[in-house]
Design a protein around this nucleic acid. Structure first.
Length: 439
RNA sequence: CGGGGCGUGGCGCAGCCUGGUCAGCGCGCGUGUUUUGGGUACACGAGGCCGCCGGUUCGAAUCCGGCCGCCCCGACCA
């Protein structure tokens, strides 16, 4: 994209409403704008990040065999009456009436709807197990939205639902999802720690939260450094092998991990001193096993080989996709702005044309832009160099290709790495090669 | 939902207590000159229903009432 033709409104000053660093930076870097309390418009650069995160989530869900579908945001109250949650969910649920005075709601989650979809079509044990997911906007009418996109009312969530014939199967699905989660966060360059969790309004008796480490996180976490060294790749854990899943689950549950509310200093003391870690964390995912909590009241039955009917065992699995944008910034920034991990950056590189009026300079930039295409943000604005440096640092592109008139005359550019800040002067060709090699 | 605070050009704010050339400042924006590798300088200029409604008053951004919106602390949550 050409910056001069982009809706990426950067701000020099801090908006008064933004309290935490990710919120400030998202506003200042022109990623989002608030339209109501806890509701945000995603501007082009922010939307690109959102899509990249969603894509990684999608690929890792697919990799463990989950199927993507898409359910509506608006749901009939009827379904929620069946499960009993229409009354129990409380004011967080946004209730709506249509012109016929029918009761609807803007979905905060989709257990009822997916159970309904399955019971309509799935009748035999031959058709299970299955895991489905979608990446959809949710609405929870939080009493007090805050922290920008981290605690909004409208948010993008990946939610998956598993259906199994028995507990053993449900546990397998649960572990597969857990594995997919660890891979997902690792790919984004995040250190994620799974923690035993309360089941809350989703219900159930097995649940984990996924906390990613960020110096400005909301809660204090204590964990065993062993988590940082685990290789979650397919070569180490085959998600189709129960033995691998069991080994994985053992790793996830035997090492110490707890938030401050559940922290037990005595148990933590049993972790070898050099592996004890303490930090701040942000919750970005939550998974639940809840058995027949929905299949039973909603009368979803499956015929078994002996002809008996059973209620499938279910689980649900959430990742806060829009929240991750904020969480990643909390985990990766400095005084100048965002430092995007390569895989989620809105643009891989920014091309800074320090002197657009200079023919050689502009020609070299255009060449560079043509080579990089859609993954480059070309700063072709008639601005002072200082403005461009500051904006590029603020927006956090992993690479900056700085093109000034003097070096451009020699066909040289300067390549700067945002993380670390190293700069090297080299030919455009070598700069492009270095970028390609890095990916 | 309890407690607190704030709504004044795109952003950040002053003015309000002590009603009357107070509608102002910085940034941003436009034009020109300047500068030309880290948010340059100067000049000129555009832009505001002072959140909304009502009241008090000769006169309201300023005082009073109601409403709406937003933010912070707490309880709750991906």
């Amino acid at each position: 994209m050409r910056l001069s033709r982009s809706l990426i409104p950067t701000l020099k000053e801090n908006p008064a409403d933004a309290q935490i660093v990710s919120h400030r930076l998202m506003l200042r870097a022109g990623l989002v704008r608030q339209t109501s309390a806890g509701i945000y418009a995603w501007l082009p650069a922010g939307f690109r990040v959102l899509q990249k995160i969603a894509q990684i989530v999608r690929e890792e869900q697919d990799a463990v065999g989950a199927q993507e579908l898409l359910m509506p945001t608006i749901q009939p109250a009827e379904l929620w009456r069946e499960s009993g949650r229409y009354d129990s969910y409380g004011k967080e649920m946004l209730r709506i009436r249509d012109r016929h005075d029918r009761e609807l709601l803007y979905g905060p989650t989709n257990e009822e709807m997916i159970t309904d979809l399955f019971r309509q079509s799935v009748r035999s044990y031959r058709e299970l197990p299955q895991i489905v997911y979608h990446i959809q906007w949710k609405f929870r009418d939080e009493v007090r939205p805050r922290f920008g996109v981290m605690r909004g009312r409208e948010f993008l969530m990946k939610d998956a639902y598993s259906f199994d014939l028995d507990y053993a199967g449900a546990l397998r699905s649960y572990r597969q999802m857990m594995l997919a989660y660890m891979r997902t966060f690792q790919r984004m360059g995040l250190k994620a720690i799974p923690m035993q969790a309360e089941t809350g309004p989703i219900g159930g008796d097995l649940s984990h939260e996924f906390i990613i480490l960020a110096p400005t996180g909301e809660s204090q976490v204590f964990y065993d450094a062993a988590f940082e060294d685990i290789d979650y790749s397919a070569s180490n854990f085959d998600h189709t092998q129960d033995a691998d899943l069991a080994r994985f689950a053992a790793l996830m549950t035997t090492h110490y991990a707890a938030t401050d509310e559940k922290h037990d200093p005595d148990v933590f003391a049993s972790v070898p001193r050099e592996r004890r870690r303490e930090g701040r964390g942000i919750e970005v995912g939550h998974i639940f096993y809840f058995g027949t909590k929905y299949s039973k009241p909603m009368n979803f039955t499956i015929a078994m080989p002996d002809g008996k009917l059973i209620h499938p065992e279910m689980g649900s699995y959430g990742i806060g996709v829009s929240r991750l944008v904020g969480a990643i910034i909390e985990a990766s920034h400095d005084d100048h702005g965002i430092i995007w991990p390569d895989v989620v950056a809105p643009f891989k590189a920014a091309i800074l044309n320090l002197k657009p009026e200079d023919a050689a300079c502009t020609e070299l930039c255009e060449k560079c832009y043509a080579a990089l295409g859609n993954e480059a943000l070309y700063d072709d604005r008639l601005e002072r160099p200082g403005v461009k440096f500051a904006d590029a640092d603020l927006m956090g592109h992993p690479w900056q290709i700085i093109v000034g008139p003097r070096a451009a005359a020699q066909g040289m550019v300067e390549l700067k790495r945002r993380a670390g800040g190293e700069r090297h002067e080299l030919s455009l060709q070598s700069a492009l090669e270095k970028l390609a090699a890095h990916a």
